[in-house]
Every structure is written in structure tokens, then in C-alpha cells.
Computed example of a mutant assay.
Amino acid sequence: MDELRRFRQALVAWAAGGTAADAAAAVARELADGRVRTVVLVEGTSDQAALEALATRYGRDLGAEGIAVVPLGGATNIGRFLDVCGPSGLGLPLAGLCDIGEERHFRRHLERVGLGTGLTPVGLEALGFHVCVADLEDELIRALGPEGVRQVIEAQGETRPFRTFQGQPAQRERPVEHQLRRFMGTHSGRKALYAQALVAHLDLQHVPRPLDRLLTHV
């Protein structure tokens, strides 16, 4: 197991608290020392997959650069991770990505741990925290366009399941962009699968702004 993966696992255990927290904190501190340059906090594994895949397309290796992309397991956990990674914990440089609906959680806890006051969207970006207009899937679908996304679905061998999904009564009258977003969340692991696949098909001149700006920041 590589050291950044061990570091992420230790952070998760530390942030979760409980009887294993102290041991996990010791592991995280040891692994962070001289090996981790920046922690990027993201909502879930699909965000992690997209960022790491895009970095690779930019010719970067985030792990080799000491940049740990850490999924929070949900935006409401941001406070716990800021406690362990931020000024009162590891004191590492931080960055992050969230959906617009979860921005308030990020902003409130960043201010709570002393990383800003009265944070605006511009202030969040200056700290390295970027917000998707709706969510990651929406950003990627708008960047590729519906037809481009359909081509990716076809390449994944899922055209038939997608057409079946479109035929469901709740989906028939919805815009195709909405159908595509909902389809990607119907099975466990599908969001992460499509995060990687959609990034692989992006025109690098049309990368979603939050992803591009975040990677530029770190």
C-alpha cells in the first residue's frame, strides 16, 4: 500500500474519532512529515477520481508531488477533516472542491478553524476551495455536451441501460442533461467510473473551471 493511501486512511480514522483516533493521528503525522505537501478535501470518490485523472492528462502525478486528494464521505464531514488537517491539527496547506449546495458547510468550518472571515466565493477560491455550479457531473456534462456524454456511455457498454433509464416514467419528460446526471448516480461506483471516463474525453481547452482552477492552485 502506498504511503499516500495509508495517509488518507489514517486521516479518515482520525477524523472519525473513537478509540482508534489517537493511533491514527500518530500514523497520519508520521506519514505527513516531509511527504505530504497539500491536502485536497473533496466530497466523494468521484471527485477524487476526476481530479487525479485530469492531473494525469495535464502530465502531473499528484502523489509524486505530495498532494493527497482525500474524499470526505460527504460534505457535512468537512469540519472533522479541517480539525485534523488544519491549523489545530497537521497544519498542512489545504484546498478543496464541493457542490454549490454544500458550499455553506465548507465556508462555515473554514471560518471556524481560522482560515478566513466573511468568506465570499472569491475568498474561497483564494484559499484554494472551488465550487461546482451544481455538482461534478453537471460540470462535466456541460463541458462535453450531451452527445459527447452519450458517446462515453456507449464506450462503457451502457447505452441499453441508459435508454432503459430514460424510459422510466419519472425520467421521460426531463431534459437529457438531467437524465444523464441521474443515470450516473444509479449504481454504487458509477459516479467514479464516469468521472474518470468523462475526464478522459474532455477537450483540455474546455475543462470545467473549478477543476482547472483547483489543479492550478495546487
Rank of each mutant, 00 (worst) to 15 (best):
Gly86Asp: 10
Glu30Phe: 12
Asp22Thr: 11
Glu65Cys: 05
Gly185Tyr: 14
Ala75Phe: 07
Arg182Thr: 15
Gln205His: 15
Gly114Arg: 05
Cys85Ile: 07
Ile153Val: 10
Ala126Met: 01
Arg5Ala: 13
His201Leu: 02
Gly145Asn: 09
Ala197Cys: 11
Val39Ile: 15
Ser88Asn: 06
Val69Lys: 07
Ala10His: 15
Arg107Pro: 01
Asp22Lys: 12
Gly18Trp: 06
Leu51Ile: 11
Gly114Thr: 08
Asp138Cys: 05
Leu211Glu: 09
Val149Lys: 13
Arg57Ala: 03
Gly44Val: 10
Ala50Ser: 13
Arg174Glu: 11
Arg213Leu: 00
Arg190Val: 12
Val113Trp: 04
Glu111Arg: 04
Glu137Tyr: 13
Ala24Met: 02
His178Leu: 14
Leu94Glu: 02
Ile153Phe: 10
Gly114Lys: 09
Arg6Ser: 09
Asp212Pro: 04
Gly89Leu: 01
Cys85Arg: 00
Ala200Arg: 08
Pro210Ser: 06
Gly86Ile: 04
Gly74Arg: 12
Leu90Asp: 05
Leu41Met: 15
Gly73His: 09
Val12Ile: 13
Phe183Ala: 09
Ala25Ile: 02
Leu4Lys: 09
Leu202Cys: 07
Ile100Cys: 03
Gly123Tyr: 02
Gly89Ser: 00
Pro161Tyr: 03
Val70Asp: 03
Asp61Phe: 09
Val149Glu: 14
Cys132Arg: 08
Val84Trp: 04
Arg181Thr: 15
Glu52Leu: 09
Glu177Thr: 14
Ala143His: 12
Gly63Met: 08
Pro87Gln: 04
Leu115Ser: 05
Gly145Glu: 12
Cys132Asp: 04
Val176Leu: 15
Gln196Ser: 14
Cys85Val: 06
Arg213His: 03
Gly44Cys: 04
Glu154Arg: 11
Gly118Ala: 05
Leu124Glu: 01
